[in-house]
């Protein structure tokens, strides 16, 4: 059974239609990469999946729960879906460890000691256990993004959403974040990744999608997508980016 299923999702910002009917499915453990030109609605789409944006038409079903205005459903889905943002969005007034333990303690209501133990495990997993007592502002961009990944993982989500996790980073830091993501993908996490890192897509993705002007114009396996694109717009996009 698919863990995410969307059916003809449409979204307007005022008069502007950002999503013009997106239907897709993601299987459990699958890694899906979404790419496409700027303004094509990639962010809007994945933000609809955890209700940071509200879609107006169509349906989104995550792990068997349909996203409606019902607050209970929204909370349930948000605790199963982790998200990593382009601009990290760590909480600057809390230490790295507090950033990571916040959700387990307050949302999952776990004990502090248990949460801290888990947090240290996660920080070790993304390679920065020694930064636990620092504040986000004292870390490099790459380290911050890895903390953000650990923070999202602390909720023990079934699905992880990444919205251009590396585009705010200096080239030398991109690798460390991508490595953390690869490790996560190998561990069997279901992931939707919006990115322009084509190397990552080729190596890790199970499927690649291309968005353009609010529509999904191509969906394919990575090899097919890069070597044998079907759609003209995919060809154009690939020629611009590669």
């Amino acid at each position: 059974m698919s863990i995410i299923k969307t059916n003809d999702v449409k979204k307007w910002f005022g008069d502007f239609q950002a999503l013009k009917g997106i239907s897709m499915e993601v299987q459990e453990g699958e890694v899906l990469v979404i790419c496409g030109p700027s303004g094509s609605g990639k962010s809007t789409f994945i933000r609809c999946i955890n209700r940071l944006e509200q879609h107006q038409e169509g349906e989104i079903i995550v792990d068997g729960i349909e996203l409606t205005n019902d607050l209970k459903n929204i909370e349930a889905i948000r605790s199963e879906v982790g998200m990593v943002f382009q601009s990290f969005n760590l909480f600057p007034h809390l230490t790295v460890l507090q950033n990571v333990t916040l959700a387990p303690i307050w949302v999952r209501k776990k004990s502090r000691s248990e949460s801290e133990e888990k947090a240290m495990e996660l920080l070790t997993r993304v390679g920065i256990p020694e930064q636990a007592s620092k504040f986000p502002g004292q870390l490099s961009g790459g380290q911050q993004q890895r903390v953000a990944i650990a923070r999202a993982l602390a909720m023990e989500p079934k699905i992880m959403l990444f919205d251009e996790p590396t585009s705010a980073l200096d080239p030398e830091m991109i690798k460390e974040v991508l490595d953390a993501m690869k490790e996560l993908a190998l561990s069997g996490m279901t992931m939707i990744v919006v990115t322009h890192e084509m190397g990552f897509a080729k190596e890790v993705a199970d499927r690649v999608m291309l968005f353009d002007e609010g529509l999904m114009v191509e969906e394919n396996t990575p090899t097919e997508f890069f070597d044998n694109p079907q759609n003209d717009r995919t060809k154009l996009f690939l020629s611009q980016i590669l």
Binding site: L52, E75, R78, G82, M83, N89, L90, F91, W106, M155
Partner: peptide, 18 residues
């Protein structure tokens, strides 16, 4: 407070009060 802070808090499932 930047909008990203609200979104990050929402994304980890915090209630409005929290």
């Amino acid at each position: 407070i930047p909008k990203g802070q609200y979104e990050a808090a929402d994304a980890i499932g915090m209630s409005p009060f929290q």
